[in-house]
Amino acid sequence: MAIGGDVLLEVSGVWKSFEGHPVLRGLDMHVTAHQVTALIGASGSGKSTLLRCINALIPVDAGDIVLDGSIAITAIDADIDQIRRTVGIVFQSFNLFPHMSVLDNIALAPRKVLGQTRDQATDSALQLLDRFGLRSKSGEYPDRLSGGQAQRVAIMRALAMQPQLMLFDEITSALDPLLVDEVLDVVRELKQSGLTIVMATHEMQFASEVADQVCFVREGIVWERGAPQDLFMSPQREETQQFLARMHR
């Protein structure tokens, strides 16, 4: 490992095909605790599929994903519920529950999965809303929120489960450019607080600012990886150079 610290997530030789079309082709990746890993790469390169495999939302075809040295996410008899309690994920399209208020969106899983009382869950949810400046929206329904607010609520909903690892799947891609910053600010704050984050993103500027490690995913494998200054300033492989050139044009 080039980057020091404890390895929280170890992905080795992961394969995943959809209808005979391989999306992940033996992908390897290590994620160090309390660091931010940015996954960059073209659409369809396998970033989202990888994140969904890590959250056990889709089963892998081959390979291992091990969390915290002991939890085998890819084992046939894995405790899926425990994995999902430990690993949070936020999607590009928010996926808030439209029939629940902001507060209930955040408090549902802590109550039903962690067994918190309604008061406990409400208190923690309100603390999160305070921390990210959305207290005034606690009683609103998702259709009354802007995209940026909705995505921040989605992040809080995942945070309420106090995950050890947080996955962000292109969380700013569906947003109006003016709203991107308010969501990225949340990610900055989470990095400060020491949360381990893996994020698929097209925001190169942001990736170079917050990431400790950047992985360029291409054709289902990590094509090149490195610290952001190395990977962005002096990419070693031709395909990485071409991708970055296209992103910066």
Binding site: N55, L57, R84, L108, M161
Partner: peptide, 15 residues
């Protein structure tokens, strides 16, 4: 995607 979001939070299929 609603089911996916719910399952990703650790809620069981029944919940």
């Amino acid at each position: 995607s609603q089911t996916m979001a719910s399952r990703s939070l650790g809620l069981s299929a029944w919940q």
